[in-house]
Design a protein around this nucleic acid. Sequence first.
DNA 1: ACCTGAACACCGTTCAAGT
DNA 2: ACCTGAACACCGTTCAAGT
Lengths: 186, 186
Amino acid sequence: MAQVRPLRADARRNRERLLRVAAEVFADRGAGAALDDIARRAEVGVGTLYRHFPTRQALLEAVYLERVEAVAARADVIAAARPPGAALRAWLDELAVGMLQARGLKALLGTAVTSGSPACGDCVRGAAARLVRAAQEAGELRPDVAPIEVLRLVHGVVTACESADEVDETAARRYLSLLMEGLARP
Amino acid sequence: MAQVRPLRADARRNRERLLRVAAEVFADRGAGAALDDIARRAEVGVGTLYRHFPTRQALLEAVYLERVEAVAARADVIAAARPPGAALRAWLDELAVGMLQARGLKALLGTAVTSGSPACGDCVRGAAARLVRAAQEAGELRPDVAPIEVLRLVHGVVTACESADEVDETAARRYLSLLMEGLARP
DNA sequence: ACCTGAACACCGTTCAAGT
DNA sequence: ACCTGAACACCGTTCAAGT
């Protein structure tokens, strides 16, 4: 899937410049930022952007790949330190805060979670599945919810926060708290 | 605020044609449908569309005004027939189903709820406030949530449903059910 | 093998000219 | 008082020409 042959030196430089610039631009213009603008700031033809990243989604994934993997990896760290129910909750907390902070991350996870993009989606879905199953086996989570539903609900909760005037992590935690209480009862 | 003088006959006809066509187009193209397209189908210059509805939001509001008012009015009917907690829940159910069915309605309420647009926002916020307060006074709803937060959460839940493959009212009710259980505990 | 940027398509929005 | 549609701006996407 990934490049078998290493990229030519100039191509590699361009790719990296694009990623660095895209991260900045997504950060302050949001996930819908003009691709044209990203190419120009990276001092690269638009065609080059499209060659490396055929879709906006592909660019978003490449930009946030590390962060997404980090969040997914946190799942196991957290799971080792806490009982299943608390672990799930703590991880969803981190996930929600991450989505609130990184403006592109939420857009990415929104679609990645739904339409199974292999790169980023799998590791997040996998992490969620492990935590959800564990919590269900421990009787700390209602058995009739699927991991993907939990992810969708968290996505919805973050959306609810965004529609407030200012991004508010406290509100996010409160909303998640409500959600978790609902999820706990069978 | 509204037109003091009645509209000229041709203007009135144009306005009505625009509303009728816009309703159709929003219904099958979504709330982001091309305004250009709406004008063309209504056999009207684009400028005429902008004259009557200066923003997409204004058009959405005009198209869904009746439906929104109907939903708001349902609040009092429901409140008269059930205890406060059940009434709130039943109304939020109807609200969520309405947002799922009418593709523009959700987009409209999303912004209307946040950035207080007078036309549609007020009546929905008012209805929500009455039901939420009543449920809180009856001790059936935690006292630390504001009506607008409840609306945001419902909006988030509907968003969660939409990210599923197919629009699923059953899922919406389940999610709302979880949310309400979380909202009930103090 | 990769890059460039002109070219095209599409959509939103405005405004001069018309009735 | 209202309508029209050309004109402009902006953005996404492709592709012929270049190295």
